[in-house]
């Protein structure tokens, strides 16, 4: 019990962010028409590519002088993250472009 409370106190700001973001995500999405389910899912998928920041930090502070397993994995994380971000946003845009065309 004490340990749980300590954890809560230590991370209270983040836990607030989590609680509010959950609510925000639900609110933002709840009225979406079925037409947009696929683009929305794809767009959200691209946003989950924020993990790329982790990749940048990892490779940014790693030692480049030796080719270690850690470095290779870090670079892999960076490339995967980029794929998620760039691919995700471009695919979403391509889907939405088609809706746009019909608008007069």
């Amino acid at each position: 019990m004490e340990q749980v409370l300590t954890l809560f106190f230590e991370y209270k700001e983040s836990i607030f962010i989590i609680a509010l973001s959950i609510f925000l995500g639900v609110e933002v999405i709840s009225n979406v028409p079925a037409v947009l389910h696929t683009p929305l899912m794809s767009g959200a998928n691209a946003i989950s590519g924020v993990i790329i920041i982790g990749g940048i930090i990892l490779v940014g502070h790693s030692d480049l002088s030796t080719l270690s397993v850690d470095l290779v994995l870090g670079i892999l994380a960076l490339v995967f993250g980029t794929l998620n971000v760039v691919g995700g946003f471009v695919v979403t845009d391509r889907m939405l472009e088609m809706f746009k065309k019909r608008k007069k």
């Binding site: 989590i18 973001s21 925000l24 995500g25 929305l40 899912m41 959200a44 946003i47 993990i51």
Partner: peptide, 14 residues
């Protein structure tokens, strides 16, 4: 944190 959780909850609702 915010981006990830946002996607998590939006994805869950979807």
């Amino acid at each position: 944190i915010l981006g990830g959780i946002l996607v998590g909850s939006a994805g869950m609702i979807l």
